[in-house]
Design a protein around this nucleic acid. Sequence first.
RNA 1: UCCGGCUUAGCUCAGUGGUAGAGCAAUCGGCUGUUAACCGAUUGGUCGCUGGUUCGAGUCCAGCAGCCGGAGCCA
Length: 467
Amino acid sequence: MSQATMVHDVLSGKLAVKDVVTLKGWVRTKRDSKAGLSFINLHDGSCFNPVQVVAPNSLNNYDEDVLALTAGCSIEVTGEVVESPGKGQAFEIQATEIKVIGLVEDPQTYPMAPKRHSMEHLRQYAHLRPRTNIIGAATRVRHTLAQAAHRFFHEQGFYWITTPIITGSDAEGAGEMFRVSTLDMANPPLTDKGEVDFSKDFFGKETHLTVSGQLNVEAYCLAMSKVYTFGPTFRAENSNTSRHLAEFWMIEPEIAFADLNEDAQLAEDFLKYIYKAVLDERADDMEFFAKRINKEAISRLETFINSSFERIDYTEAIEILKKSGKKFEFPVEWGLDLQSEHERYLCEEHVKNPVVVTNYPKEIKAFYMRLNDDNKTVAAMDVLAPGIGEIIGGSQREERLDVFDARLKELDLPAEDYSWYRDLRRYGTVPHAGFGLGFERAVCYATGIENIREVIPFPRVSNNADF
RNA sequence: UCCGGCUUAGCUCAGUGGUAGAGCAAUCGGCUGUUAACCGAUUGGUCGCUGGUUCGAGUCCAGCAGCCGGAGCCA
């Protein structure tokens, strides 16, 4: 690939005035001046702002090509970097040559016309929406968060474990699953009992898309000490909200010889690290989000990374909610799970910052969570963020085989389904803990974008797998 | 899955049972080192689909579809 100059190189001042460069990109807007020139705003994804290209009518293809340019056209521009005499940009390109690479077929119906569009409209054009300010900015922030996540773990001595996407385990216990099968659905092989015979299926058993890499990553944790997963996750739940996707990316660190406190500290350090990276590296995009999406987009991240998370025991949280004097739609009672409205009160009104709620009643939490000494609660935590709700769910895992087996029995789960997971408790077991972070929710929090479908390139939700 | 709402021009939306509207975009013209410029004009419609009520339905009713918001589930 040729070392093409990017818009970012020009606007950042990396290039010297009078350097002759060739830029390739897409037209965002064009303004013609009868003074004998046109102004073209060109973007190529390398940064938030487009570069202004000044096209004089002395160009030999000015009338036929330059005047015909509309939003979305792709062009190649050669010209000199100059200081801009106009307001709004320090540098611009004085074009000496403009080549049209691709015109827009019908400017009137081009879906990304230079005007305000609704998010629903952009979603219907998921293949064209990355050309817009907001999706471009969200894409860069998403990238920065992903890179920062890997960098954080790497610097802390974690190993990235790629856990399987297709799972033969029906014990992940985190929700409805998508089946993976090569059987002929119209005419499947049947057992004597008349049920579908999955022993004839591709893997010789029933398989699904993973709902969590946690159980697998625990195995690597109990050998490599500090590990994490970062990959796609699938939930076949018919949940229709701005916070859920059928396909999303999850980050799940797991640390050995650690308890819930260290887990919560890890979550805090991690979130602060990735959000600091966004503030440091994507100032241009964040400025846009603060201006157009959420006025507090930048300030709340600054507050976030400069204050320590409040930690509240579940039992304490119940007391706070009871004493709040607020009228809640759902009851507040020890033993009941916290509802969205309760979580929102805790982090948005009571603390006004992210809050870690710990030690939930065992009845409302998963089988693998470690039983506390009170025999009533488990060492679980939720990190709640204002505006998003639950951004992280984690726990210390039950490492004691006898306690784990008792818990399985209590929940009527067959021990044979957990044979390899039990092995981890039979051979050199150690206390360990981890959490799951919904990556898209983290992107929502960073950008202030409210709907999770805007922060993943091609969202998959029930009834919609277009593109 | 449940509750509520919406569906009218390329887009965003007005529209009181009686001739289909605006802004933006697009096109044309004017003006201008312009900044999602400004001024003027023009083009653009099976009012989501099916049925019903009515002399008459974009408007009222029913069904269906799609989308949006909230809830549940969760990350």
